[in-house]
């Protein structure tokens, strides 16, 4: 239930809910929705639906004789009569700002973006600078990947991982998307390795359709949703081949990396972390950026590799 906001009057809330309910009932066949669906749509309880229902029931135009007929029928709410129906409302200016951000940030193709904008956005906001945004980068290929997921089509992606200097091609059976702490991923099965993988969308430089997915070819079994079992980033890092012990200086903030498997405060005020690492260069860069506040304690070989990496960088300048 949405809490009341002072300054946003009770009348405001009633009008908003009544318009939302009219819009919902207008958009469904027969003008019938369940009370549960209406309550969820309006963000209110079933009892609170009585107010917008009562408001709508009073609507009448004396001159034309049009009336709004609305009533509860067991667990449903029913709207009768064409005059009561609202055509789908355009988004408000604020809602339009958010939709505009979605269309831009997910690289929706120009033609589809134009059609959706003309259908939904207020006409006077199309030239407005962006008012909503996300720093998550979804890359340029979201629409093509989404289509491949829907059509169960294998794709070849040019992808650069943390350990690659340049992108290389991988054939992937795409299965879905995920977002973790502001990073967007493609979840799929690497056809060559025959294992679930996650790929950062901003590192996919090109996408090419390969073929329709085939079934029963020895690939990882899927769950009921048709997806292979993609473990969380944390769990997959726990199984990573490199496990490191990092000591954080007392005066330095403790990192919040996904790969942290354990943490202990030491008597001198420093913090010791056990970290699963999928990419050594990634770990080295995080330690370097701490400027001496992080130290790789174990394994010694990893600490030596870091020192070599750092010296090589310093020699460039």
């Amino acid at each position: 239930m949405r809490k009341r906001i002072p300054g946003f009057t009770a009348s405001d809330r009633r009008v908003e809910r009544a318009i939302q309910l009219l819009g919902l009932l207008s958009s469904v066949d027969g003008g019938i929705v369940s009370s549960a669906e209406a309550a969820e749509h309006l963000g209110c309880t079933d009892d609170e639906l009585d107010e917008p229902i009562a408001l709508i029931a009073t609507l009448a135009d004396r001159e034309s004789g049009a009336r709004a007929v609305i009533y509860r029928d067991h667990g449903d709410i029913v709207l009768e009569g064409a005059p009561s129906r609202l055509l789908p409302l355009r988004l408000s200016t604020a809602e339009g700002a958010v939709l505009a951000a979605v269309l831009e940030d997910l690289s929706i193709p120009e033609d589809a973006r134009g059609r959706l904008s003309r259908a939904l956005l207020p006409p006077d906001m199309r030239s407005t600078p962006p008012r909503a945004a996300s720093t998550t980068v979804f890359g340029r290929h979201f629409p093509a990947i989404a289509r491949a997921i829907d059509t169960k089509t294998a794709i070849a992606i040019m992808y650069r991982s943390n350990d690659d200097a340049t992108a290389r091609e991988r054939v992937v059976l795409p299965q879905g998307f995920d977002q973790v702490v502001g990073v967007a991923y493609l979840l799929g099965v690497d056809r060559e390795k025959r294992e679930p993988r996650r790929y950062r969308l901003e590192r996919i430089q090109a996408v090419r359709v390969v073929e329709a997915q085939s079934h029963g070819d020895g690939l990882p079994a899927c769950d009921g949703s048709g997806r292979a079992d993609h473990t969380s980033i944390r769990d997959s890092l726990a199984r990573a081949s490199v496990q490191a012990t990092i000591r954080v200086s007392p005066d330095a903030p403790v990192p919040t990396w996904s790969g942290i498997q354990g943490m202990a405060k030491l008597p001198d005020g420093s913090t010791e972390l056990i970290v699963g690492v999928a990419s050594k260069p990634w770990l080295f860069d995080q330690v370097l950026s701490a400027g001496g506040a992080y130290r790789i304690v174990e394994p010694c070989s990893l600490a030596q590799e870091l020192a070599t990496y750092a010296r090589r960088l310093a020699e460039e300048r």
């Binding site: 009348s11 009633r14 009008v15 107010e51 408001l55 609507l59 009561s84």
Partner: peptide
């Protein structure tokens, strides 16, 4: 419930 005059007027205008 008690019906609110302001809300009723706004919705009547729209309707």
């Amino acid at each position: 419930p008690r019906v609110d005059d302001t809300a009723q007027r706004l919705l009547n205008l729209m309707f």
